[in-house]
Computed example of a mutant assay.
Amino acid sequence: MKVGIVGASFARSAYLPALRHVEGAQVVALASGRLESARSAADEFGVPAAYDDWQEMLDRHSPDLVLIATPTDLHAPITLAALERGAHVLCEKPTAMDAREAATMLDKAEGLGRLHMIDHELRFNPNRARVAEMIANGDLGEIRHVNVANIGASWANPAARPKGDWWSLAEHGGGRLGANGSHQVDMLRWWLGPVASLVGQALTVIPNRVDKTTGEPWTATADDVAYFTMQMQTGALAQVFMSGVAANNIGNLTQVFGSKGTILLDNEDEKLLFAKVGGAFEDITVADPLAALPGLNKGIWNVSVVAALRELTAAIVEGRKLRAGATFFDGLANQQVLDAVKKSTATRAWVDLPAERK
């Protein structure tokens, strides 16, 4: 299976190490906005061709599978071009710039009969899969509310980001809402089902920034703080608060409160704790056997990509639909939630979500 990758940074940290453990996958080319980045990653992992033009890469190699890890504003055009050239696609999150683009990507993939996946890799993490199973089995009873907090300091210093950093520019699809919020939304939809309505804000708390090297002032336009409350169709409430401008890193904490018990999951130690009504918390952590594979970068994100890519490539070879993971259907539903947060920011009101496509 010929694999082409667009985006050198995440390719080097996650895709390329993971693909060494995916049977039958051969990376034939890698493209990046900077040719030196593409060549450096390609040389390190023995990829035979490197480009600074993703269209040329697609034309020259006709890959069977394309992995896309670029700024968000490039997701739709690269996805559509790859699909039209006969490739199946894995696209990074957030899906697109808006729901219109996400729907176009979905329609194209379905119309051409291609497999499609959004890289919400934590659907393949054993601890989060355990939570999904426990909720589905009724071990927690009726889910009443969920709290998710993701607090960091990486954007707190006005000189922390270089001028032109796409993560800080709304016109390129940057911001905490897309970067982290999309993962939280996917996890909550996976666990609890569709979102009925929400209220929230995506804010730029530190717009005035300076380049960390030159000292040149510039303006950030993407959100560095985002928070929202979702009412799920089940009636459960889910609250998410994300900040990149705190003075200290607190990390990611997830709390699930049901009528029969409570789940706690902290990314700091990745321990999964469960307490029944009136009982003490017990450690029910599930180890990920993939973490022992050689050459992977540390962290649940990099490890979980292996299982995601194994499932996607197996589905391609076997000519079947995905059995696990987030598809472009999930990507569209996710994007509708992110769009609703932005609408709520402008209107300062609750926003109802449309029915999800299936």
Score class of each variant (00 low, 15 high):
2 K>T: 15
4 G>Q: 06
4 G>A: 13
13 S>H: 14
16 L>K: 14
17 P>V: 12
30 L>E: 04
38 A>G: 10
41 A>W: 02
42 A>E: 04
45 F>R: 15
56 E>D: 02
68 I>A: 05
71 P>Y: 04
72 T>I: 12
78 I>A: 14
82 A>R: 03
92 E>W: 04
97 M>N: 11
98 D>L: 08
100 R>D: 15
115 L>P: 02
120 H>M: 04
121 E>A: 15
129 A>V: 02
136 A>Q: 05
139 D>I: 00
143 I>K: 03
144 R>L: 10
149 A>K: 07
152 G>K: 08
154 S>L: 10
166 W>G: 07
187 M>T: 07
190 W>M: 00
191 W>L: 02
201 Q>H: 08
210 V>E: 07
213 T>F: 05
213 T>C: 00
213 T>A: 08
213 T>H: 07
216 E>C: 01
218 W>C: 02
227 Y>F: 15
232 M>V: 01
233 Q>E: 14
234 T>P: 09
236 A>E: 03
237 L>K: 04
248 N>Y: 14
249 N>I: 12
264 L>K: 10
268 E>K: 11
274 F>N: 06
286 V>K: 14
296 L>D: 13
299 G>T: 12
301 W>M: 11
310 R>I: 14
321 K>G: 15
327 T>C: 07
331 G>E: 05
332 L>Y: 07
339 D>I: 07
342 K>H: 09
344 S>W: 01
348 R>Q: 11
352 D>G: 01
358 K>Y: 07
